[in-house]
Design a protein around this nucleic acid. Structure first.
Length: 465
RNA sequence: GGCCCCUUCGUCUAAGGGUUAGGACGCGGCCCUUUCACGGCUGAAAUACGGGUUCGAAUCCCGUAGGGGUCACCA
């Protein structure tokens, strides 16, 4: 074990939003650093000037912040370091570990298609690798002089020992003809300069690790540990597409109504396990997380499980916090917010996401007369109306609108009529909420208030039209 | 196609030579109950296939099949 303090990093490219896979990569990096008392950094890989966008950068920063996965230091922007990257390319050139290649993109493309036509794998062999008599004014790229024989081995913390024959690796580009660094150069230089000890990232980078290692070794730098975690697939096992997981985490927050702690817990358990534990707090996760228990195979998104977990966290969440999240969906404000907070314990007990929370709370703020669901109307039989009338009388007579008084009054009406509570509660529920399910009927009455409750019952007894 | 990786209930996973293969989500049943949720109990449900090694294999080895990743002057 190296004595170096652990430094991890999450390095998204701002060409899209923070998706679920990126979020999990960030989480694993964060957890690993915390577990080892190390540092977790964020680096925005924006060297692709054409595809990097500010909205994407904002979405990534915002998403990380929402999940509590912001870096321990302000994010590093890779493009700001282009000068440093070019400097390293120069050093590599000077050391004879890299060379200027004057092959044009057209020539490259021609060779590639030729190889394809002959059905043999294309592996570039640039004649410039051994030549130094390039034309003075012609554009060139800087290529690494990759080893031709032997094999390169990575002791991956997740995938285990992975070896690849060096013939498979060709002389990839370090510096583009416009002088800008490629990703392959930039990551290595930045990881080194930032002191990154553990590179934890998606499995799609495993092949890149071999190439990056060549650069690390050419510079004589200390090699980082690699951990390539399997990708996340859609529910159908296919690659994550727009239809499911390749959504920004903001969609989980804003449209699906997921709590960040639920998403984090879900993501943690996706590809990693700790015995039979399912609900794991952030603190426990920090204590338990390790790379040894990260699975090696891709896992699929299971929205049902995410929802289930979300319901769990919803029930334990602070009422005022939840009310604030629900309020915009109901378009309420002011004292209605207080009413919402008061009813929240009963509402959140039945919801699995913020949308259901809003749906469950909606009855509180509906204007009279209520829009009735057909199934609710069906409960209001002539017989039921008789009982409702009795209930109204009893409720009107209450001097104090307290939980105890309400329950006693309603139960008394049911007893008096020789009814099981349900026979009275259901029509009452229908009249008060316009629906067939809701929080407990006493709670509904309590949070609606005496005036509103009686008004709603009356609406059903004496239809205005 | 070349190279690399993966394979335990439908899904996420536990079990790192000896277990009735465990848990969770989902699904079914029962209970609780004023509805809906929650909760409790319970049922069905897996070691991809074929060979080895071993007294003994989900665990180790080989092969087959299936899946995934990657092959840019993108990251």
């Amino acid at each position: 074990m190296s004595a170096r303090p652990v430094v991890t990093r999450f390095a998204p490219s701002p060409t899209g939003f923070l998706h679920i896979g990126g979020a999990r990569t960030a989480l694993f990096n964060w957890l690993f650093a915390r577990h080892h008392g190390g540092k977790y950094l964020v680096r925005i890989e924006d060297t692709d000037r054409a595809r990097s966008t500010q909205p994407a950068i904002d979405a990534i920063i915002d998403g990380l912040d929402w999940l509590g996965l912001s870096g321990d230091e302000p994010p590093v922007f890779q493009y700001d370091r282009a000068g440093r990257h070019a400097e390293i390319a120069e050093q590599l050139l000077a050391k004879g570990e890299a060379y200027r290649c004057y092959l044009t993109s057209e020539e490259l493309a021609a060779r590639r298609t030729a190889a394809q036509a002959e059905r043999r794998p294309f592996r570039l062999t640039s004649e410039w690798r051994e030549r130094s008599d390039g034309p003075a004014d012609a554009p060139f790229v800087v290529r690494i002089k990759a080893p031709r024989a032997g094999e390169t081995v990575i002791e991956d913390k997740v995938q285990g020992r992975v070896a690849v024959a060096n013939e498979e690796l060709d002389d990839f580009v370090l510096l583009r003809s416009d002088g800008n660094p490629t990703y392959m150069l930039a990551v290595v230089v930045d990881d080194h300069d930032m002191g990154v000890t553990h590179v934890i990232r998606g499995d799609d980078h495993l092949n890149n690790a071999f190439r990056q290692l060549i650069v690390v070794r050419a510079m004589g730098w200390e090699e980082p540990s690699y951990a390539h975690i399997p990708l996340i697939h859609g529910p159908d096992g296919a690659k994550l597409s727009k239809r499911h997981g390749a959504l920004g985490v903001d969609v989980y927050r804003d449209e699906m109504g997921i709590l960040p702690e639920a998403l984090v817990n879900y993501l943690l358990r996706l590809g990693w396990g700790h015995g039979d534990d399912e609900v794991i707090s952030r603190e426990q996760a920090v204590e338990w997380f390790d790379l040894d228990h990260v699975g090696k195979s891709p896992s699929r998104m299971d929205y049902k499980k995410l929802e289930n977990l979300n319901g769990h966290y919803l029930r334990g969440a602070d009422d005022a916090r939840l009310a604030k999240l629900v309020a915009p969906r109901l378009e309420i404000a002011g004292d209605q917010l207080g009413q919402l907070v008061g009813a929240m314990p009963e509402i959140k007990a039945r919801a699995h996401n913020i949308n259901e929370l809003a749906d469950g709370a909606r009855f509180l703020f509906q204007e009279r007369p209520l829009m009735m669901e057909p199934a609710a109307t069906a409960l209001l039989t002539p017989e039921a109306r008789v009982h409702l009338a009795h209930a109204r009388t009893a409720l009107e007579a209450l001097p104090k609108w307290s939980p105890e008084a309400i329950e006693a009054a309603v139960r008394a009406v049911a007893d008096h009529a020789g009814l099981k509570l349900g026979k009275l509660a259901q029509p009452l529920r229908a009249a008060l909420t316009g629906r067939t399910n809701s929080p407990g009927i006493f709670d509904v009455l309590l949070h609606l208030g005496q005036h509103e409750s009686i008004g709603r019952i009356s609406d059903q007894l004496e239809p205005s039209e």
